[in-house]
Design a protein around this nucleic acid. Structure first.
Lengths: 189, 189
DNA sequence: GAAAAATGTTGCCCTATGTCAACGTTTTTA
DNA sequence: TAAAAACGTTGACATAGGGCAACATTTTTC
């Protein structure tokens, strides 16, 4: 149950087995169906998730139902609605599984407790933040000034796995283009 | 010289005067003209800057000279090309003052030394990362799916000071719209 | 495994916004 | 402070990509 998580942590920091076990035991297993909402727009986010299996999507929806996908996290990665998790304000975004998934869930309280008590976990958190920041940067700036074709090419180059696991509709909402346009572009590649 | 920096640090974490002084002494003063390049596209970023006075812009330029502004930092804030600073790879972006400025500069080596040696500084770094992440998020997602008018309104609401200190041209390159369009929109507000 | 629902594709038309150019205004430089 | 350069504004025009609808295909549900 904890092997993927432990492998992930070991890959990021030098850690003894005892600390690793201590960390692990704060995580509980959550099994979900596909399209299950983990966090609603108005909710404050109290959990961090590690994905053992499946895929989690971070997105928003405008009043008229238009969805805008922000981020997709797959096996072996952490995901949460970080701004809400940090500030404890309403998320203004949704967390949702897009496949049947197995998640390891830790409460915010326990998470920050580990950050305080286990230096390696603090280091891990710093690396998650650094990496998150870099990915977010690449995402914004990778797209800035791009037309639809360039965006698709960018994803093919930098996140090819997305195209394989994500529906066209979600892909389009991630790229900020319409499904029609995405469809037209794909037919010309 | 260090008073703004020290005020900033005190506002983020509980710290004794000795640690504060220790931190301060690693920073050296850099005075710049306007439009001075602090970091070039191909360079690896070795410094973190705190802005005592003035303004620093983070941007990229495509081969044909089109500039895309990423971020503007003003008095009392830290700024660097973080992905390059973290990974020590070429920045693929520029750092530039847009006004005559006074910066406090710390080398990457000293910066991480402080992160290791001064717990409050580590905490400060975590907060900078958290905040940076949140701001980057708001930036991406605030703009996603917006047309030009919505983007301008978003900035008026969330970063009104930008409109006062930044030229239309830079503002447009920040919003990802043409100066003409920005000009037309402003005339209709 | 049949019916229903969701998703993907494609054509037609339309709008927002880019490009270019002309001109006025402000800022910079010497 | 005068000349040059950069910037801002506005009009005419071109075009990428959105909206909608019809139909095809795939996925889900019972």
């Amino acid at each position: 149950m904890y092997s993927t998580l432990q492998k992930f942590i070991k890959s990021k920091t030098d850690i003894d087995d005892q600390s690793l076990l201590k960390i692990s035991l704060y995580f509980s297993l959550v099994k979900t169906k596909r399209k299950e909402i983990l966090l609603n727009y108005d909710q404050v986010c109290h959990h961090y998730y590690f994905i053992n299996k499946g895929c989690v999507r971070l997105f928003t929806a405008s009043k008229d139902g238009y969805e805008s996908s922000r981020y997709f996290a797959f096996e072996g990665n952490f995901v949460t609605a970080l701004p809400s998790f940090i500030d404890q304000k309403p998320a203004e975004e949704y967390l949702q599984t897009i496949e049947k998934s197995e998640l390891l869930c830790i409460s915010r309280i326990d998470f920050y407790k580990l950050v305080d008590e286990v230096p390696q976990f603090a280091k891990l958190y710093t690396e998650i933040l650094e990496l998150g920041f870099i990915v977010a940067q690449k995402r914004i700036y990778g797209f800035q000034g791009f037309d639809a074709l360039d965006k698709v090419k960018w994803v093919i180059k930098h996140q090819p796995q997305l195209l394989l696991r994500i529906s066209n509709k979600m892909m389009a909402s991630y790229l900020g283009i319409s499904p029609s346009t995405l469809s037209r572009i794909k037919s010309k590649l």
